[in-house]
Write a protein that binds this DNA or RNA. Structure first.
Length: 804
DNA sequence: CTTTGAACTCTTTTT
DNA sequence: GAGTTCAAAG
């Protein structure tokens, strides 16, 4: 990569730039302090994204910095997309596409991208595959068996946790060894070592490796570090309070040539300690970067005074924090509404009812959100919102790409790309069932012990040609298990062949599905869920097609890029849509909504049961602070007197965080089954109250006869009128839906915008000649539905066929 | 080898 | 209450 003219020293800002006109003086200062280390302490809602985006624009416009020289790190892909969009807006459309040229990335995406380039330095080939946590667990369990440890699930989880912690701290197994202080840890480190070499053998990396691997490259090869640092002349980091030591070290490497590191963060919003993040990074920033300048953003532009006060009531009880006070011009505001339901279902029903009511008062669905502490709580809300015909989208939870059927299909592709990848290989070797059971798998593993399972499979498939030990061992397979293994081998080879030919990815997948009768298998194997799963597989094909069409990559690179994306991006990462957002509090970080419902505010839910020491409680408190400060206009806090946990009802107590809020700011919805008169302010009172509580849950003051308020009734009635306008939940209605059922049907002719292609005969590398039945889109990337005699109907992108 | 059913366990939070 | 694991029958 050659950059001829680096701006080595960007000029100090001269006077005012019109770019900064829309910022307040402190924001403007933060955006224009361009050189050297900078710490921006940005309270909730103080416009930090605004500052960062303007800063990027300022660098480009006023300081003559090339977009390619700017690196901005965020925590989620969602945040990346938003930042890019906003930079684009500020810069305006001048045809230079500057926003696109800035590197805006998550740490992990950057890691994946750079590791593809430097894979060799780590003994990986660039075909390496990324393991998600399910794959990781599969590998760990297998290794535990080999290492004959107790094959205990919780032990496996513990080991995964250990490995993850090591990687978060940037420690390789060798480095971890030096830290060992007892024999148990010694043992764990040994396992870490084992795990790491298994990953390398399989030519795979896990999530932590995306960072640790990159770190290793930078540590071992100063030249690479230097050139990267020179390329990224200006580095910015969002949510700096949530960086872990590995990420921090990475930043140091990347900025060592210039020290131009601007970090934005808020210690009150640090919520990823459990993931290895340490506030030490933000608290000690000035120590590591002695000449760092510090800017504090304390004016809140988001919430009402009431909401801000409530948030402050909660957070001020934390002891370990940089003192700061947020203020706003936005005085007053509605009181925070509290509602206590009799159980979790009623809680959800209440929220649904209120959403309808707000909607009737013309709050758009997209401006409302429901937050909860754990993903499991989301289901109740899904049910009730669906029932109330409210459009919603669930963010987080099981990601699309983590679903079984999706992982299955992708596993075939991953094996085709990298057959040494044993986790994926074992995942689909007998899926759909081919008669290859545990015994056969064990034999293959023994046969391939010195090489790989794949080579043992190859040996079986190639029959008596080879006389190696592997072959002898593997040759014990006979009958159904042998034909099964051979069949699997052939499937993978066929996929590889199609990929080698440069066949379109979506076609490869369709062929694969046909070849292994995957959809039939889904149907016979688990009829109940088959419909959903079939649709998901169809959506996967759609996503692949879409990706391929938009991608400017060629050949196998498309597949690699798609697979990387599937491991790094949540399918729900896209923003926008007129639907109510359902998500965990963690997921809400960085977002804002007019109306926020904060549900399940009960002790042992929020704060979580698993909170043990005071530091963890502090973190829960910060989490509550984050939740509250997401709300612009109104906040509704709900809880339930009893809740189903482990499938049975258990009594609850109100969250101490609600008790911490000055009752002055609360308005108890009298439709509640409890009057909340018990809500007394003060953290100190909590422990005391808890002692007082009798086992029969007398904390809650039963008062079930209270009628709904007139306001609530009014809203409920109003809402009835509006219900019909909203269709059944269709979160991604504008996405093209791949109609799987159409695969077996007769093609239906169509003439929409077909460039005159309709009915023409085409020739395709694999399928031969066929007739175009349907055209959607125009140009080389249009999707053609083609009837191939002998093969049947296929959808193919225009550029892959020749029109005869 | 595969399927079935009963027993058993686990629940934070996510890139 | 859901997902996983284990044993026994097909």
């Amino acid at each position: 990569m050659t950059r001829k003219s680096y701006k080595l020293n960007a000029p100090e800002p001269q006077g005012t730039s019109e770019l900064l006109e829309n910022l307040n003086p402190v924001q403007a200062e933060a955006a224009s302090l361009v050189d050297g280390p900078l710490l921006i302490l940005a309270g909730a809602g103080s416009g930090k994204t605004r500052v960062m985006t303007h800063r990027i624009a300022y660098l480009i416009r006023e300081c003559g910095v090339w977009p390619e020289q700017i690196l901005a790190m965020t925590f989620t892909n969602k945040a990346c997309a938003e930042m890019r969009e906003r930079v684009d807006e500020i810069l305006g459309d001048d045809g230079l596409d500057e926003a696109r040229r800035v590197t805006i990335s998550t740490f992990h995406s950057l890691g994946a991208r750079l590791l593809r380039i430097y894979a060799r330095d780590l003994g990986l080939s660039s075909d390496f595959v990324i393991y998600d946590d399910v794959d990781q667990m599969a590998l760990i369990k297998r290794l535990m068996e080999d290492d004959d440890r107790d094959k205990d699930r919780s032990e496996a989880r513990r080991l995964r946790g250990f490995i993850e912690r090591m990687k978060n701290r940037g420690l390789t197994p060798e480095q971890a060894h030096e830290e060992v202080y007892d024999s148990n840890t010694e043992n764990d480190v040994h396992f870490y070592e084992l795990y790491q070499s298994a990953l390398r053998e399989a030519n795979c990396v896990d999530f932590g490796d995306l960072l640790l691997g990159l770190l290793q490259v930078l540590r071992n090869d100063p030249k690479t570090a230097k050139s990267l640092s020179n390329q990224y002349r200006y580095v910015m980091v969002d949510e700096f309070q949530d960086t872990n030591p590995a990420q921090y070290e990475l930043l140091k490497h990347l900025t060592r040539e210039h020290n131009n590191l601007a970090v934005v963060g808020d210690d009150d919003q640090a919520i990823y300690r459990w993931r290895g993040a340490t506030v030490a990074n933000i608290l000690g920033f000035e120590k590591d970067f002695p000449n760092a300048r510090v800017v504090k953003l304390e004016q809140n532009y988001r919430s009402t005074q009431t909401i801000l006060d409530a948030a402050n009531d909660v957070i001020e009880l934390n002891t370990q924090r940089r003192p700061k006070k947020l203020w706003t011009d936005n005085v007053g505001g509605e009181k925070i509404r509290c509602f206590t339901a009799s159980d979790d279902r009623e809680e959800a029903a209440y929220v649904a009812r209120e959403i309808t009511a707000y909607s009737a008062e013309s709050v758009p669905f997209g401006e409302m959100a429901v937050f909860y502490r754990t993903n499991a709580q989301g289901r109740a809300f899904e049910e009730q919102l669906r029932f109330a015909q409210i459009p919603y989208r669930v963010v987080g939870g099981t990601s699309f790409y983590a679903r079984e059927e999706i992982k299955d299909v992708l596993a075939y592709l991953k094996v085709a790309l990298n057959p040494r990848n044993e986790v994926d290989l074992l995942r689909v070797l007998n899926k759909p069932t081919r008669g290859v059971g545990k015994t056969s798998i064990d034999r293959l593993r023994i046969a391939g012990a010195s090489t790989s399972i794949w080579s043992a499979i190859e040996a079986v498939a190639h029959g008596g040609q080879q006389q190696s030990l592997e072959f002898l061992e593997a040759a014990k397979l006979r009958g159904k298990s042998k034909t099964g293994v051979v069949d699997f081998y052939e499937v993978v080879r066929e996929v590889q062949a199609m990929l080698d030919e440069g066949q379109e990815l979506a076609v490869v997948v369709s062929e694969l599905l046909d070849r292994i009768h995957y959809l039939d298998w889904l149907q016979s194997h688990d009829a109940e869920r088959a419909e959903d799963r079939t649709r998901n597989v169809g959506e996967l094909v759609n996503a692949i097609m879409e990706f391929e069409r938009e991608s400017d990559l060629e050949g196998l690179d498309v597949l690699r890029a798609f697979l990387d994306r599937s491991s790094l991006v949540q399918a729900t990462d896209d923003l926008g849509s007129g639907a109510v957002t359902l998500m965990t509090v963690h997921g809400s970080k960085g977002l804002e909504f007019d109306v926020v419902f904060l549900a399940g505010m009960e002790d042992e839910i929020f704060p979580s049961v698993r909170t043990e020491d005071p530091e963890e409680l502090d973190e829960e408190r910060r989490l509550a602070y984050v939740a509250i400060t997401r709300a612009r206009k109104e906040l509704v806090i709900t809880n339930a007197k009893r809740r189903r946990i482990f499938g049975q009802y258990r009594p609850t107590t109100p969250s101490r965080f609600v008790l911490d809020i000055d009752p002055e700011r609360l308005h108890v919805d009298s439709a509640s089954t409890s009057s909340h008169v018990d809500y007394v302010r003060g953290a100190g009172s909590y422990g005391f109250r808890r002692q007082l509580m009798s086992p029969d849950n007398s904390m809650w003051d039963y008062d079930q006869t209270t009628p709904m308020t007139r306001g609530a009734v009014r809203r409920a009635i109003q809402s009835q009128k509006n219900v019909d306008e909203f269709s059944q939940v269709a979160p991604d209605a504008d996405e093209p839906v791949f109609d799987v059922s159409a695969w077996d049907q007769e093609p239906e002719p169509s003439h929409s915008g077909d460039d005159g292609l309709h009915g023409r005969t085409v020739s395709h590398a694999t399928f031969g000649e066929g007739k175009i039945m349907k055209v959607s889109g125009t140009g080389p990337k249009a999707v053609l539905t083609i009837q191939f005699p002998g093969t049947g109907e296929k959808r193919v992108v225009r550029k892959y066929v020749k029109v005869l």
